[in-house]
Design a protein around this nucleic acid. Structure first.
Lengths: 202, 202, 202, 202
DNA sequence: GATGAATGAGTATTCATTCAT
DNA sequence: TATGAATGAATACTCATTCAT
């Protein structure tokens, strides 16, 4: 691939990401994506076999960034305070979700498309879970072993409760904005209410 | 409207609800909606001015059911246990969300569509909040006054943490299923972890 | 046919006449005609087999009024002055044309439709001429015999020259109005210029 | 625009001209126009924004040819004989009208369409007159000054009387043909009857 | 006789995709 | 590699017409 081709490919991925996010999969037209990338429509097909493959490529790049802070989380057990770690995590999740959530919504309108989103299709069937839920669970378990999480907490359930907050926040903010409402979701407050019951007193 | 016309209208609303939910707004074709309703395409336009109005009508009917258990919730303060009330609520939210979430996702791909979803456009701008968040907050405050919720809990934040659970659960289950994964979201466990910190010990 | 049916039929003919004239044959919808007549669409088909027959009926009634002043014209030779007779005629033609011209234009967009306009399909093929041209020619010939038209005038040609004036006037006025121009066609002046050469001096 | 694109555009204009003329504006389908131009339907929209713009482009090209002989007419005063000049003019008008008249009729069925036909919308409101009427009037005035038109003739009125002949002729011939009649309009005879009264004896 | 719900063929227009340049 | 003209299937929507009430 030449350098010129690479540049074009990146422009297309960026353009496609924003158009797919705004309009959904069916609503996004190759025309708009091309115009938005500053190339001609035909050029799309020199880089991607068809619209679906373009979407897949966009989703893959956007979803890959998921792992940066998240995967290293379990190893961070014992550093800082639990609250600090989780607040950083929750912000990170929110950042990724803001980009990925609309793409996920777009994908959910097309069965064959959704199948292409499987992060590791070769991985075991039941172990694969969505996004940062698993590393978050493992982090909480590690903290629990360190005594910073109360002993009888079900870490998987707590992880889900924590994860649901930025997850819901992004979706609701997006909707509020679309509906002209002000989006004031107090994520920190919500996290603190959850932490109340699970963090061990110092 | 004759009785026959009414029947047709309902068939159309049902058909449209499922097709919009499956395919999104742009991906849903009038042809499929008509076929699914067992009528001809032209019939759609005897009942609705255009596809957008049809979507609006679908959304209105599906969203109306929102208020059944939810609105009466604040008045239930003091009855049963807090946990029982909340588990029922969470199930109710999940039921409604299962129908509404895909429609909301569909709507978010079209700016003008989203604007039409505002429940009461004449209502105050900042007081309007989405779905059951407000009654849930008021319920928790009522329980707090009764001493069944710990005094220094921020009820709005706690409400959001609780609400996020069925909200995220529905979206993630939908996705898991689309991706061929088993959807084992333990909502009850997550709720219990949140309640740990906010429910006053008897 | 009941009296109620007759009334409806007339309303339909009037409505159809104006809609066909405004929108042309293809552009006129049965929906607009029905609305304009204050009846339901289905009612049209109780009075006319289809749209084409409705158009034919409209055209027949509108074209029938053609004959009132015109047919009696040849018999008027010798009365009043030639100029007076022709000015009245020309006004009459203009009045009829104003209604008929748009219908004729509408008909010309559909070959089978045009065929239905033949005034007397059983009449001889070459003798049938359009509208008032024939009576006008006969009138001029009669005046010529009376010495009020110069002897060597070709009455058929003169008739065409005279007839062309209101004919063109109506079409041009219609266009001028559609294009936002003021329609000041001096028909009387034009007639006088033609008469200069053919009317015998007293 | 590539050469290939230009060719296609011209094919489309030709095809559209004939289809609009035959079927009127509403009656002309993009399908028939495309088929008649030997291209696919989608191609129309690469060259014209919509059907209306296509019609406007057709009308503009067909109406432009209007000015060839006509505009130079006033300068021809004094050459040949008045009769010869006018017979040539009348033939020219007839040729143009044969193409333009059906388009004009088509346009008159759509108010917004007619407005787009204004040749120079910025020109003065009352000075703008339709087609060759103005140059014809000016020609007659020039001849009048040269003594070849009788002094007290109203040239504007005479011009209208002359113009009306080919104008009416085209429309009536079209109709006669549509109705299966033979179209024997003796334009020359009609012109001569008009000239009788306005041309000065040599 | 009149209605209005229903129809399905047809309309203008857009779409993802192909291909000659 | 990139373009943009071309395609034809598909889309939302309209139309003339039918028919049960």
């Amino acid at each position: 691939m030449t350098q010129r081709g690479d540049t074009t490919r990146l422009q297309l991925l960026d353009a496609a990401a924003s158009v797919f996010a705004e309009r959904g999969y069916a609503g996004a037209t190759t025309k708009e994506i091309a115009r938005c990338a500053g190339v001609s429509e035909g050029t799309i097909y020199r880089h991607f076999a068809d619209k679906r493959e373009l979407f897949g490529a966009v989703f893959a790049t956007r979803n890959a960034s998921d792992s940066e802070f998240v995967t290293s989380l379990p190893a961070r057990a014992g550093t800082r305070t639990v609250r600090e770690n989780l607040l950083i995590l929750v912000e990170a999740i929110q950042d990724v979700e803001r980009e990925v959530a609309p793409l996920r919504a777009a994908a959910s309108t097309d069965a064959e498309l959704a199948a292409a989103l499987m992060p590791t299709p070769s991985a075991g069937p039941s172990t694969a879970r969505l996004g940062p839920l698993e590393p978050l669970t493992r982090y909480l378990e590690a903290e629990q072993r360190l005594g910073r999480i109360i002993g009888d907490v079900d870490c998987a359930s707590a992880a889900f409760a924590l994860f649901a907050i930025p997850f819901a926040s992004v979706t609701m903010d997006r909707l509020s904005r679309a509906m002209g409402l002000s989006d004031v979701t107090d994520m920190v407050g919500a996290i603190d209410e959850v932490l109340r019951g699970i963090v061990a007193p110092e």
